[in-house]
Design a protein around this nucleic acid. Structure first.
Lengths: 245, 245
DNA sequence: CGTACGTTTGATCTTTCTCAATAATGGTGG
DNA sequence: CCACCATTATTGAGAAAGATCAAACGTACG
């Protein structure tokens, strides 16, 4: 009874919200009843641009997205990566003007929830408000870890850490099949996420491979020995605030 | 009538909250009426440690604080700096376990507000809830800019950017007297905030000085030409979400 | 006035970047 | 199914930014 007969586009959002805080049955119903329109976006297309004020909140139904900022001389830094079930515009629920860009990593389906509807739901149901706030706080925690990662870890540890984070987040969302995962990023994009050049990402990932930490097949990543990989990447999942299950 | 006769310890918090969202008179009264105890902490002492769950929310009355994380091999990264009026534990209002450390930069006075009292206020007054949420979202925006800063700007731009951010934030809080400001950080700490070594911070800041971007006297920093400094540091204040006044 | 801490400087070493070329891959139209 | 094109991955050689190590110098403060 805890799963609807047909998987709706907002089911993954529900799963995401429940990862961190329990919801009441009424909360679940209200979320499932949120109005939305579905939209398919191509890789590299934008949902939000710096300076804009979007009037709806996108939730990823399938595919991947990333947050990105540019320096004045055009260097790109990816500041966050999002997987299915994650909302992309919670900032703009309350901040008028976006301070960064959100782009699709892959072709993706988005559920666009009108800003007003989500605001009303958050105002009406404290349980939902709490779950949304926790999502925001956890994203902030991930930002802090990324600052640490980019600021103080060397290239190979840094890359290993990112790969570990991705694995754990996908797994928590039920999107990892236990035998590695598809990493939908070019080495250029990995570099932009890590503050490295694509050339150095290439050398670094091959080194991880040579050392037996990582196996690759196309974009598919596998860790022959998770414990060893986790240790090498200096990865501890506390900052993800995922309930141990 | 919009300032209380005797400046209370929570006045700066009020100012901070109002920087981003207007409050009703009732909201102001409720904030001023929050219970708290004052505490003085020495430099380097902790208010929060990773793994702990603090049961009160500290607000800086005077002095400075920073957020910090460590890598497995002991490298430190400062992930945020806080000035008077800023709350230090909003995360832990809803997340049980802290994912980073909060330490005093200088000797500081903190108003410790019981977690329950603040939670109750947020639950009771939507205006306050909104203001608190905006503070959280803006802090997240600052984290994103820091990722960009550490990931994609070279040492001197990076340092210049940090100095600009500090100037604008102090000014917005009414803590800059127009003629520079006291930067209460050692070069070691600056390095930890920027992902650099203290040696390199030293060389970089002297270079900024030699180029005429910065004047220093002890820890006091002045910019002879703000526009030029701002451009050099690739600094745009959009991400701080400060209402233009 | 001495001690501890912070700053400054020099010399050298490493990591990562840059530039450039080559190889592999995936998708497309025929 | 195959040839072609655009993108991505890989590799090499050399340059540069920043780190490391070590020492000297300042400054504040007990």
């Amino acid at each position: 009874m805890h799963s609807v007969p047909t998987a709706g586009p907002l089911d993954l959002l529900l799963r995401k919200l429940e990862t961190h805080a329990p919801l009441e049955e009424e909360d679940r119903r209200a979320i499932a009843a949120l109005p939305y329109t579905l939209k398919t976006l191509e890789p590299q297309s934008y949902t939000t641009r710096e300076g804009e004020s979007p009037d709806s909140c996108a939730v990823i139904v399938s595919g991947f997205a990333y947050r990105q900022k540019l320096t004045g001389n055009g260097a790109r830094q990816i500041v966050g990566i999002h997987i299915p079930g994650e909302p992309l515009d919670l900032q703009n629920l309350y901040l008028q003007v976006s301070d960064h860009n959100v782009q699709m990593l892959t072709r993706a389906r988005l559920a666009m929830i009108p800003r007003a509807a989500l605001q009303a739901l958050v105002a009406a149901r404290p349980g939902v408000a709490r779950a949304v706030l926790m999502l925001i706080l956890i994203e902030a925690s991930i930002f802090r870890e990324w600052i640490l990662n980019v600021g103080r870890r060397d290239a190979s540890t840094r890359l290993a850490h990112l790969l570990c984070e991705f694995a754990v987040r996908l797994d928590a969302q039920g999107l990892a099949n236990g035998d590695g995962y598809e990493l939908p990023m070019t080495q250029e994009q990995l570099g932009d996420a890590l503050g490295l050049t694509s050339v150095h990402v290439n050398r670094t990932i091959r080194a991880l491979e040579a050392l037996g930490f990582v196996e690759r097949d196309r974009r598919r990543i596998r860790f022959p020995d998770w414990e060893r990989m986790r240790d090498y990447g200096d990865f501890t999942q506390r900052y993800l605030h995922i309930e141990p299950r």
